[in-house]
Design a binder for these strands. Structure first.
Length: 425
RNA sequence: GGAGAGAUGGCCGAGUGGUCGAAGGCGCACGCCUGGAAAGUGUGUAUACUCCAAAAGGGUAUCGAGGGUUCGAAUCCCUCUCUCUCCGCCA
């Protein structure tokens, strides 16, 4: 979330940013509400602190009087302090009420979009940041979508997943399973080669962790929740991996922190059906390799570019045609300041599939995480960034479709050492 | 799951109602000492909020978390979480 002081000092900028997220004049009233509550909080605190200071001083006096045997004097002060206590109790409850209200409002304010974020209300307004310059692959009339290819070559089975679990839980088999494992290993190797530390995190997280990266309270319905133990299944490795640095104070020399993690990802994605979401296009469980960086605020946008280049190089290696979009204000995630989406072209479906999302959260997550660094004068919030590198299910879909031949599916060269076969048939 | 013990600063560890944001040690930083180092020695070394135009300097809170008793809580009481030991179960 945003810091109140930031909102106070950059009010015009904040309002400008929220407008880009299509806040109406009515919605924007929240900003003044926040500032008013914060003013209120300050004045209550000043009053309360003074009261407590007096109480502490008098209490100390009582102690001294008691020790020197002046019981009567102590008794009279004691009565005075008892009154102070009641006053303080009232003020404390006003204080906590006020703090709760303020917190609730702050949770409702999304991150301020970066200057470069285009205006717009939906995904159709996203800007093509880097187009695909070469020709798009064309397949013959017999080309099959990946769900048909999966049946033909026994790569994955969604019906079997329904039997075992429910819809949207694919079962990968044989060479399909091996292909999956090859992609994971390839992506992890490339990430570690690029200097990211490999992490295997827990797949379930507690409430504090889910709150730290912003899944709570905004996206509660997206996560599977294990009620008995009060745990959430992770929707992305971003959640447990970034939270490694929750409540941490770094030194400037620690930057950049680069982490990567492979995990299955669980998403409820309630209420989406149709041709659009067939096959692997949208499932409840999929594998993803995530890259996370924690960086000095002055360098986070360079880091974002570095991460874009990393994801791009993976797609280049896999010989997949892709384009990069800069998300508009209306499509930008709640916690993000700037997000680039990578889309891969699926020749059989004749559409672009989102395979990666790379974002700079600036201080929005770190404020919740209390992730700071020392800069000589005091502590400041660090910047957090993350990106998929890459999400498997849709990459698999695109590779199956684009690389299909009458003999089988051609495995990209870079993956062959991992699969042990050149043709998936 | 059952029984017991415990949770104090970056780390170890003292502290059972007032003089405790907290002894002592380690670590770290800076200085002295030294040809240089080690040893020795001196000083400093949490976070958040807040007051002040700012600096300096005040104030408040924080001893796992939350609540309570009290004029006053690291210390007493309650609830929760976590850790350790033993037993049970188990990949």
């Amino acid at each position: 979330m945003l810091e109140v002081n930031y909102i106070r000092e950059n009010k015009e900028q904040v309002i400008h940013g929220l407008k880009k997220r299509n806040f109406t004049a009515g919605d924007l009233a929240i900003i003044d509400d926040i500032l008013r509550l914060d003013d209120n909080r300050k004045s209550i605190q000043t009053e309360l602190d003074a009261l407590l200071a007096e109480r502490n001083a008098l209490s100390k006096e009582i102690g001294q009087l008691m020790q020197s045997g002046k019981k009567d004097e102590a008794e009279s002060i004691r009565q005075k302090v008892a009154g102070l206590r009641d006053e303080a109790a009232v003020m404390e409850s006003r204080m906590s009420e006020n703090r709760e209200q303020l917190q609730t409002l702050l949770y409702k304010v999304p991150n301020i979009p970066n200057e470069s974020v285009p205006a717009g209300s939906s995904e159709t307004d996203n800007e093509v940041y880097k187009a695909w310059e070469k020709d798009l692959p064309e397949l013959s009339g017999e080309a099959l979508p990946h769900w048909d290819l999966a049946k033909k070559y026994n790569i994955f089975d969604l019906d079997l997943g329904v039997k075992i679990t429910g819809s949207g839980f694919p079962v990968y088999r044989g060479k399909g399973a091996r292909f999956q494992r090859a992609l994971i290993a390839f992506f992890l190797d490339r990430a570690t080669a690029a200097g990211y530390e490999e992490i295997i995190p827990p797949l379930m997280v507690n409430e504090d962790t889910a709150r730290g990266t912003g899944q709570l309270p905004d996206k509660e319905g997206q996560m599977y929740y294990v009620e008995k133990d009060d745990l959430y299944l992770i929707p992305t490795a971003e959640v447990p991996v970034t939270n490694i640095y929750r409540d941490v104070i770094l030194n400037e020399s620690d930057f950049p922190i680069k982490l990567t993690g492979y995990t299955p990802c669980f998403r409820r994605e309630a209420g989406s059906y149709g041709a659009h979401v067939r096959g692997l296009n949208r499932v409840h469980q999929f594998d993803k390799i995530e890259i996370v960086q924690i960086q000095h605020p002055d360098r986070s946008y360079d880091t974002l570019q570095e991460m874009l280049a990393h994801v791009g190089s993976l797609l280049d290696s896999l010989e997949l045609p892709y384009r990069i979009l800069r998300l508009c204000g209306g499509d930008l995630g709640f916690t993000s300041a700037l997000t680039f989406d990578f889309e891969v072209y699926s020749a059989a479906q004749k559409r672009w599939l989102e395979v990666s999302s790379v974002s700079n959260f600036e201080t929005y997550q770190s404020n919740r995480l209390k992730l700071r660094y020392r800069d000589g004068k005091g502590t400041r919030l660090a910047h957090t960034l993350n990106g998929s590198a890459l999400a498997l299910a849709r990459i698999v879909a695109a590779l199956l479709e684009n690389n299909q031949t009458p003999e089988g599916i051609v495995i990209p060269k870079v993956l062959q050492p991992y699969t042990g076969f050149e043709l998936l048939n």
